[in-house]
Simulated assay, not measured.
Amino acid sequence: MIDEEAPDAFEANRRYLGSVAYRLLGTFTDAEDVLQEAWLRWRAADRAAVADPRAFLTTVVTRLCYDQLGSARARRESYSGEWLPEPSVSYASAPDSPAELAERGESVSLALLAVLEQLTPAERAAFVLHDVFAVGFDEIGDSLHRTPDAARQLASRARRRVRDGGRRASADRAEHRRAVEAFAAAALGGDLQGLMAVLDPDVVWTADGGGIVRAAARPVRGADKVTRLIAGSVAKWFTPELRLALAEVNGEPGMVWYDSTTGAVAGVLAFTVADGLITGTYVVVNPGKLTHLGPFEGPSTGA
């Protein structure tokens, strides 16, 4: 962890910088390592000569992440099964305020982070900085050692690839929550017709077990196949000790399941929803990607 006596300008921007690093790298552990190194560089810098500490620190963090993305991509190519980002989970009943969302960047869904894995490091950096955090292209170009026009082109290309590679999704939060609640009720109740009714015909189930927990090695496509997979998973996974609860997953309605005895989170589900139907599910059960969540702290629910 970063020393509590870190310079004020760094601490004032720490949450923002952590949000940038997480969205660039997809893991909280790597993001924290980047923040530690960025703090060391900030401490060694001639801070009196820094006109805009936030811009300076954003550049430092971006360059550190950019350096990591190449090696991270190579590691993920040899990863067992599908690789998904580490999820962020909260149990608050109300969404974050607009100010909090702006500070972290509004586009934080697990689905979007998964799509960003398809981009080159430069495309990802340009897209995240501009489209998520509204950083100007002059600053992005400086961070990536590119011209502002080149940075603009990177962001534009990334935007097209994100649009083409993402699942259909609605911005209607109430619609999203209703679909998730219907999914939970049908899954836990063994209601296969209810599941089919809430799943888009072309729904895609993507699971990340990391080779540690058994999970589908490749995405499963189609409502019929996904329904059968869910029914089998519920029968296998949900022992009397396991509970399912609604939660905010990367700022959107999702679910977690956890051990009621220890409180340990055993899995996280995120969704994309369009026209009232679930178009994509993202399931993280790799224990190494859940330890940062700590024990379950939400309202108690039944299985």
Rank of each mutant, 00 (worst) to 15 (best):
R152D: 07
V20M: 09
I278N: 00
E181G: 04
E100Q: 14
L101Q: 13
P87W: 13
L57G: 01
F183P: 01
M196K: 14
R73A: 15
I278D: 01
V283G: 00
A169W: 13
Y91I: 01
V265M: 05
L112S: 04
L129H: 02
G298P: 03
A207Q: 13
E32R: 12
L229M: 05
T206P: 03
D131F: 14
V162T: 01
G141N: 05
A187F: 14
R73D: 11
R41Y: 06
E77A: 15
D46G: 00
D149P: 02
R177S: 15
G81Y: 12
T120M: 07
S88R: 13
G276F: 07
Y66M: 10
D33A: 09
V203G: 13
D164I: 02
A12K: 10
F28L: 11
A274E: 04
I278Q: 00
S156V: 12
V128H: 09
A94T: 14
R177Y: 12
P287F: 11
E77V: 09
G254K: 06
E32N: 10
R163W: 06
T281W: 03
G136A: 05
A94V: 14
S88C: 07
R47T: 03
V132G: 07
L192C: 04
A122S: 15
R43H: 04
H130G: 08
A21T: 00
A171S: 15
S107V: 10
S71M: 12
V273C: 07
E11V: 11
R63A: 08
L229D: 01
A126I: 06
A207P: 01
G267T: 03
A187W: 09
E77H: 10
L84P: 04
Q36I: 08
G189F: 06
D52W: 03
A74Y: 03
A184S: 10
M1E: 09
D3E: 14
S260C: 08
Q68N: 11
L229G: 00
D200H: 15
H145V: 07
W83G: 07
E248K: 12
D46H: 02
V203Y: 11
R218G: 04
S233Q: 11
E11H: 08
S93I: 05
A114Y: 12
G105M: 10
R43Q: 11
G141M: 08
E117L: 13
A274C: 01
A184N: 06
V132A: 10
A184K: 13
A12E: 12
S78L: 15
N286W: 04
S88W: 14
A235N: 11
E82K: 06
C65M: 06
V34Q: 05
E77T: 12
M196P: 00
R157H: 06
V132E: 11
R43W: 09
P7S: 03
D96F: 07
R41I: 00
G81C: 09
E252L: 14
E82G: 02
V273D: 02
L188Y: 08
P87H: 14
R146N: 02
P219D: 09
R167G: 09
L112M: 09
P95R: 10
W83T: 08
E5N: 13
L246Y: 08
V34A: 03
A270I: 03
G298Y: 03
S156Q: 15
V60S: 00
G298C: 01
V132C: 13
A155K: 05
T206S: 14
P295S: 06
I2V: 15
A45Q: 03
E5L: 12
